[in-house]
């Protein structure tokens, strides 16, 4: 009970500071309007249909990219992770491709797709995929040797072992991968919209900024932050349900 209260108190302090600093003249109100002004701008935004359209575009691009990255990452990770030869053969390639920042691909996707949603999708999938893949690979390597022996001695089929032994072991890792990927996917979606002009919240932020609507710009940035919070909270809720048997979640023992 104390933790959410303290969290709310911290948030209030930040809001009060944002209100007080420009009012006291410590920062220029033209670049940082008082919080009240930003909040009003946010309220006005919520009332327009255009806002909900761009929000939907961002959410759709993010969710689709994340879903593709999850499926690809989990499948690739399970297959690579459970075949030692594949794992050894792909390790250096993965270590090479993984650190390439997704934004470095912007010129490439602009060339191919211009400012269509596909541009953002490619960036989101590329960035989020590695987050999931790496976690799932760790998970697949973490199957307890005694559990593995148990499955072998009861003659589980290859598919049975994947489904009933490897997958449950991977699940907590995949959940972590999902949370990391969700955040990265949001960053890339907004970046693509802002830099390339793919329709969505990022694009709207760019437009607001270039037309001097400072309060609207801040309001939209706050919306992006809120999306991040909601995504993280729901991911944790799902995790707690699915992983109630796992040591990180369960209460007894």
């Amino acid at each position: 009970m104390r933790r959410p209260l303290l969290g709310a108190a911290g948030l209030l302090v930040v809001m009060a500071l944002l209100e007080a600093l420009p009012r006291a003249g410590l920062v220029d109100g033209r670049f940082l309007p008082p919080f009240g002004t930003t909040a009003r701008a946010l309220g006005a935004q919520l009332a327009t249909g255009g806002f909900w359209t761009v929000l939907g575009q961002t959410a759709r691009g993010w969710a689709l990219g994340l879903a593709l990255a999850m499926v690809a990452g989990v499948v690739a990770g399970m297959v690579i992770g459970s075949v030692p030869v594949l794992r050894a053969a792909t390790a250096s390639t993965i270590e090479f491709l993984r650190p390439i920042p997704s934004v470095a691909l912007i010129p490439l996707v602009v060339l191919v797709y211009g400012s269509r949603p596909e541009s953002a999708l490619v960036l989101v999938v590329y960035a989020a995929f590695w987050q999931v893949l790496i976690q799932v690979l760790y998970g697949a390597a973490d199957v307890d040797p005694v559990v593995r022996d148990t499955a072998r001695s009861y003659r589980f089929s290859r598919w049975g072992t994947l489904r009933t032994v490897v997958w449950p072991t991977v699940l907590p890792y995949a959940a972590t991968g999902f949370r990391l990927a969700a955040a990265v996917a949001l960053i890339l979606e907004i970046t693509a919209e802002l830099v390339i002009g793919v329709p969505g919240l990022g694009h709207a932020i760019g437009v607001a900024q270039s037309s001097g609507a400072v309060a609207e710009t801040y309001a939209l940035v706050i919306v992006v932050g809120l999306i991040g919070v909601v995504v993280n909270l729901s991911a944790r809720a799902v995790e707690r349900r699915v992983l109630r048997w796992h040591t990180s979640v369960r209460r007894d023992l």
Binding site: V146, T150, S153
Partner: peptide
């Protein structure tokens, strides 16, 4: 290979059972 007619009880019961 592990034969069909054999069942093993391991010492590490806590790890041999599937917690999920």
């Amino acid at each position: 290979a592990p034969p069909a007619g054999m069942a093993v009880v391991f010492q590490e019961y806590g790890r041999s059972l599937f917690p999920w």
